[in-house]
Design a protein around this nucleic acid. Structure first.
Lengths: 238, 238
DNA sequence: CGCCTCCTTGATCTTTCTCAAATCGAGTGG
DNA sequence: CCACTCGATTTGAGAAAGATCAAGGAGGCG
């Protein structure tokens, strides 16, 4: 269970807490790629824990422009904020076919009451997600396109290796250039050019759904990637 | 106490919970404008609750570029994420002289264990903050400068009116054009031009530390401002 | 085969940045 | 009261990053 693994990095979970966590994984469901799971503005939505596949959360503006806020990979929550805020402030779309576990607001709040440490752990996971959104914000605001792309793909690799889906060499990545454009605040055309530039300067290659690091150290430097905000040396709470 | 007021909007707090919250407000401190409270990379930092004044959280990139992630106003947490993640992933600078209450990690985690509902409330507040960061991200990624500025200033007004610091007409705002530039991912020069444009088209005026709405309805429309993500009809938990 | 999605590349245009310089008001010391 | 400084604002001119428009190409699939 990728979620337990993730939370376990922060809070040393007891048997009871693991059992409560396991009980959240009862309602299993699957969704097909491309059909929204949650739609911006819906209220009283359930949250989900992503078991397999990729999804993205995004917002649509009036003029039809889309901004992807984050991609979700196995072990991530989908729509946790929507549950807490009572209304979905963003939409969620599966990028591939996905498997999820549905979690109702009452389940979650009940679990928190029974095992407060789990609440702390979830608060930690939410903070980590926010740290990624913040880094994303910084990238869009103050990095130019190539640096932004490099940083983004490095972060994704770092997250994926945490759940065993990436190696030092690279990772499988189902994102299209259109998705990258919507995530990075660029046009799809420019994404293409930037990827070409990264390939031609020997930093990384994104081709046929696979990201390959061509020179990891130089790439880290080029992107100014600092993995501190994703690292954690061990459980904070014992 | 602005924090109790804010959390009270989400969770109907009991006398015990209010007492625990009050106990967090023991260590009062003041800081002068311009000197960092928290510095990027510090570990085991305390968190603060802002009692009066304005602050901002930001990240500095290698090349010295700065991106302001969010401004904090009374009732907001400062550095909550840094406590949970064990390391500050951003810096915090007071924009005006400020008064804060220092909160240690242990106080906070202790309070959560004693009153789980408080943990839920703080999780809610954190989610609300994240929703604002997300909206900020969307603005930087997909809105052009004028729209971005208008949306940003409307959101700020909306947050301020929640704690009684803004009216329908406008609000006092200590931000310089340099701060706005660093927040919005623009150059200070362009911020100036955009403010002029908004003034000349009769939408809003930002002058002498005061934001005045010149035509609120047209401004809402121009910015595509949707206050849903800040609204809450009442306590979710009773 | 024909259609569809995604990727690729060229040409041109727009937004925003950078550099430069003038202005303005609040303090400060003489 | 005046000269001086300092931070913030304002405006202009030219440059650059990235957007938009347009058109092909390559692979998958009914």
């Amino acid at each position: 269970m990728p979620l337990a693994r993730k939370l376990g990095a922060f809070v040393a979970l007891s048997a009871v807490e693991l059992a409560v966590l396991d009980a959240l994984h009862k309602r299993r469901r699957t969704f097909v790629a491309g059909r929204d799971l949650v739609h911006q503005g819906q209220s009283d939505q359930a949250a989900y824990i992503l078991a397999s596949g990729w999804a993205c959360s995004y917002k649509i503006l009036r003029d039809g422009e889309r901004q992807i806020v984050d991609f979700q990979i196995p072990g991530d929550f989908l729509g946790l904020r929507s549950v807490l805020l009572h209304t979905a402030d963003h939409s969620i779309e599966p990028i591939t076919d996905i498997e999820v576990c549905e979690v109702h607001a009452s389940d979650l709040l009940g679990a928190f009451t029974r095992t407060p440490r789990l609440a702390t752990a979830v608060l930690w996971a939410a903070s980590r997600d926010e740290a990624m959104v913040v880094e994303h914000l910084v990238g869009i605001g103050r990095r130019h396109a190539a640096e932004r792309m490099a940083h983004f793909l490095l972060e994704l690799g770092s997250r994926l290796s945490l759940v065993g889906l990436a190696t030092k060499a690279g990772y499988a990545c189902p994102l299209t250039q259109y998705l990258l454009a919507d995530a990075l605040g660029l046009s799809a055309v420019h994404v293409n050019r930037v990827l070409r530039q990264l390939r031609e300067t020997g930093l990384l290659t994104f081709r046929d759904g696979y990201v390959t690091y061509d020179d990891y150290d130089r790439l880290l430097d080029f992107a100014g990637f600092d993995p501190v905000y994703l690292d954690h040396t061990g459980p904070l709470l014992r």
